[in-house]
Design a protein around this nucleic acid. Structure first.
Lengths: 142, 142
DNA sequence: TCAATAGTTTAGAATAATTATAATGTAAGG
DNA sequence: CCTTACATTATAATTATTCTAAACTATTGA
């Protein structure tokens, strides 16, 4: 999904009815200057702030999963209590700040290519995710 | 924690009272031919099968977290509904089979070294985890 | 334009993993 | 042994997520 687009048409193009809720979620997710990371609760808060509207939790979950399924969102693995999503769907990796619980992109030019020599017979690789956990290096803090 | 050891002494050495439950959990986790991956419910089942005993869920959680904190278990990030743990605490990575929901080790010699050029000021790297998601490459299956 | 219908939204219930609680039990040290 | 600090336990609480079934709405074709 590109920036500043007619989400009504875009949604129809990918087989989703352009409901009021989905259009608003698109605006919040894809009409931004930069890509960003969010949890479902972040998104609910953003919708309420930017759109002064409450969309039911179930719809937010449904819509986020529909967008993920179609490749417009990426889910990021952080064994945590909640799921993180990324509006940047290009191949890249992440730093996870264990102090602030925030994600930071690690673009491909910032990491050497990942080359896996092993392969699992009968299986194809769906994705390769690198997660770099960081924390304050101040020994007196924590 | 090594194999075939006196877990009573080992536990005491790391500041944990060698209770009956902890010793049994050690035996199930560390008295094995090979390292392995497990979820909490896998472990509960294993204890009941191998030890014919029921240890309360809370104790299993507490003990697993105590061992993780002390570096005898590693937690693996798979954005999933449950947490996976690994008795192999050396630096290595994982394949995750999305069909069977099982983990497969990817040892360091099976992957080129991960070299991160970017660094986050004021933060030190705690860990680098690579997760390779695989699934059947049979287009007719799924 | 409008009615039929297939897909959506919703509140609230259900589920499931994990953590908290508070009472009971037990290892360690004198 | 007795005390006490630490552990275990059953159960309740919490939290993220999914399910359900009723109400709603976009689409389509008459």
């Amino acid at each position: 999904m590109g920036k500043n687009l007619d989400f009504t048409e875009k949604l129809r193009d990918v087989g989703l009815r352009p409901t009021r809720q989905r259009v608003k979620i698109c605006e919040v997710l894809f009409n931004q200057e930069k890509t960003f990371h969010f949890t479902i609760s972040d998104l609910v808060k953003k919708i309420s702030e930017e759109k002064k509207e409450k969309i039911s939790l179930a719809t937010v979950y449904n819509t986020v999963h529909a967008f993920k399924k179609r490749g417009y969102l990426q889910e990021i693995s952080i064994n945590s209590d909640k799921s993180y999503f990324d509006t940047n769907t290009s191949a890249h990796h992440h730093f996870y700040d264990e102090d602030t619980h925030k994600l930071i992109d690690c673009n491909n030019e910032e990491i050497d290519p990942i080359n896996i020599k092993k392969n699992i017979t009968g299986k194809k690789i769906n994705s390769i995710e690198v997660l770099i956990r960081v924390a304050s290096d101040n020994q007196y803090q924590k």
